[in-house]
């Protein structure tokens, strides 16, 4: 018994030493330890029978025992993870539903969220921002910092998509990328479809005018830079689908996209910085608000809406072309 223990001690020490030297994989070490002291395996794995079957199987199929063990570990882990996740999700739903049951009732004017904040937006919004649409006035004047952050989210999102999907001339694994680019999915669809083109002839101008209307009237009616920009972007996408990249490429290149985005965001950034700076230092901004209700009113909101609209339209179109063929 004592000899056995000695042996065990020395082997442990050796293993530990080799592990400190980084010679053995600690997982291997663990497996070897399992072989040396069988009871530990039982703790690890309650279904001893299944283990036996697995070992039979591994003998039959000549599989590496380690791989089987590892795969089984992963499977157990996965099953455990699945069950835990389902329990977690159900728990979250239950707790949140329970919470909802003790929240104030929807549609009630005396709810805590209808407080002095909303009251001031409604009562003085028109005088302070010049925007008839209070929501627009709120997001582009009262809480403009959030909205600036939001356009930065869009900007960085498009940058990430550019990183992932743009195919460059000096791309590293060029042959593969070129192959994929050549097998562009446009090969599988009819070109110059006459029905699509005629429909596009009618629809594109209407969509574009609608988009421009939404952008320009953001401070007067529902909508604004973002929704209008998305409509404009989808108009561009329809045009592209109907008439192909050749025609589109003549008027809309990557350079133009970059310039528009840069100019619009720079203007946005500078205009808002000016407004923040003057606001915080209690200076007059000197931007006329105009008569509420007129198209040229509400100070910076109209130009900002135009900027956002341009950025969003270009970004949506860029997403489309990048997803389609990895470039513009």
């Amino acid at each position: 018994m004592s000899r056995k223990k000695d042996n065990y001690e020395t082997s442990r020490w050796k293993k530990f030493k080799s592990w400190v030297d980084g010679e053995t994989d600690p997982l291997d070490h663990g497996m070897e330890a399992h072989e040396a002291i069988p009871p530990r395996e039982d703790i690890y794995d309650s279904a001893a029978h299944e283990k036996a079957v697995k070992e039979e199987l591994s003998k039959i199929y000549g599989e590496d025992r380690r791989a089987v063990l590892r795969a089984r570990g992963i499977r157990y882990f996965q099953r455990f993870y699945k069950v835990m996740s389902v329990v977690l999700c159900l728990g979250i739903i239950m707790v949140l539903l329970w919470t909802v049951a003790s929240l104030p009732i929807t549609g009630n004017a005396s709810n805590p969220d209808n407080n002095e904040v909303a009251a001031r937006y409604i009562e003085k919004g028109l005088q302070e921002t010049g925007a008839v649409n209070i929501v627009t006035g709120m997001i582009l004047d009262y809480r403009a910092f959030d909205t600036f952050g939001e356009s930065c989210v869009l900007f960085i999102g498009s940058c990430c998509v550019l990183v992932l999907l743009r195919l460059d001339g000096d791309s590293k694994n060029e042959s593969i990328r070129k192959m994929i680019a050549e097998s562009d999915d446009r090969h599988f669809e009819p070109k110059n479809d006459i029905i699509l083109q005629k429909c596009a002839c009618v629809l594109v101008p209407i969509i574009m005018i609608f988009g421009v209307y939404i952008v320009l009237n953001g401070h007067l009616s529902p909508g604004g830079g973002f929704s209008g920009g998305a409509v404009l972007g989808s108009g561009l996408i329809l045009y592209l689908n109907a008439f192909g990249y050749g025609k589109m490429g003549k008027m809309f290149t990557e350079k133009l996209y970059k310039r528009i985005t840069l100019c619009a965001l720079t203007f946005y950034c500078l205009a808002k910085s000016y407004s923040f700076f003057t606001g915080a230092n209690h200076l007059e901004s000197g931007i006329p608000l105009g008569t509420p209700g007129a198209i040229l009113s509400s100070g910076l909101i109209l130009p900002l809406n135009i900027c956002v609209g341009l950025v969003v339209a270009c970004t949506m179109y860029a997403f489309y072309t990048l997803f389609r063929k990895g470039g513009m």
Binding site: V117, Y121, E128, D141, Y142, F145, D146, T278, G279, A280
Partner: peptide, 14 residues
């Protein structure tokens, strides 16, 4: 620090 022309509960702040 007010981010804009409006004080605490109405405008953004840092």
């Amino acid at each position: 620090y007010m981010m804009g022309h409006f004080p605490a509960p109405w405008g953004n702040e840092i």
